[in-house]
Nucleic acid binder design. Sequence first.
DNA 1: CAATGTAGTCAAGCTGCTTGACCATATAGT
DNA 2: ACTATATGGTCAAGCAGCTTGACTACATTG
Lengths: 148, 148
Amino acid sequence: MHTSEAMALSAALLAAAGGLTQRIHEGVVARGFEGVRPAHGFAFARLAPDGATVTDLAVHLGVTKQAASQLVDEMVRKGYAERRPHPGDARARLVVLTERGWECTRAAEEAAAEAVREWEGLVGEAELRVLREQLLRVAPRGPLRPAW
Amino acid sequence: MHTSEAMALSAALLAAAGGLTQRIHEGVVARGFEGVRPAHGFAFARLAPDGATVTDLAVHLGVTKQAASQLVDEMVRKGYAERRPHPGDARARLVVLTERGWECTRAAEEAAAEAVREWEGLVGEAELRVLREQLLRVAPRGPLRPAW
DNA sequence: CAATGTAGTCAAGCTGCTTGACCATATAGT
DNA sequence: ACTATATGGTCAAGCAGCTTGACTACATTG
């Protein structure tokens, strides 16, 4: 593949990712969750299963634990998360999503599904599965974090 | 496509875009261009053909013209761009890439091509073209700008 | 039970963006 | 032609999100 084609691919990938991010964000806002930035989504993804400590979150997001702690402050202030005592480690605190946090997570999933559903009309359902498989192959392993 | 599959696709897309961005950035740094952040790449892309005004750049990046002007300041200070008088409008100034700016652009293209070349080994060359076509379809039109 | 490591926070500072104000030049209306 | 308004660009101040550094509370190791 030539350099110019590689650039076209890169640009398309970045544009698609940017567009999707924006679509998800708009969808979340449209569903009544304000003051949430795209970066929060990556935190929600880590907190969703069973909660996490601030340090876990910091590693996941690739920022300092102070920054992660401030992010948690903000999410707590806005009612999306709460700090609970950590069972088995009195130093740590387990950050978990509130009910509103779960609702926001579902809103983000719906918005993503809505955007992807439009893509079905553009490339077809079967091709969309192919696209997913290809992206899974080229995507790096590890935590999903904001990139630029 | 079910919601969970849509989420898997979204996550893969964001991860792939993030990984690519990081790869390009590392490749540019490895080629000796320091102090360049990923956000600069989007500015380079707009300046590359024939230069642009600060206002053009601001629209392209989706930021205020003050922010764009500061970005240009930085690029000028680091030797990647220069401000020339605008032919035909004495108010405006045409921002163009310096020779070093062009070298940096080529470095980014090489780094992108290098990453994409690895993808060829993961999904195959023919499938990579398919991937490009699919992404071009789902990518929104318009300026390529940082998303989150 | 002393020494070292880890979870978390407080405080200060930096950077990249914003809003607001302003000047110089272009363009439109009469 | 000349005033009125719009546009390109910069200066200045402020804010938000991150950083580094210092510190306390608890855990873990020997």
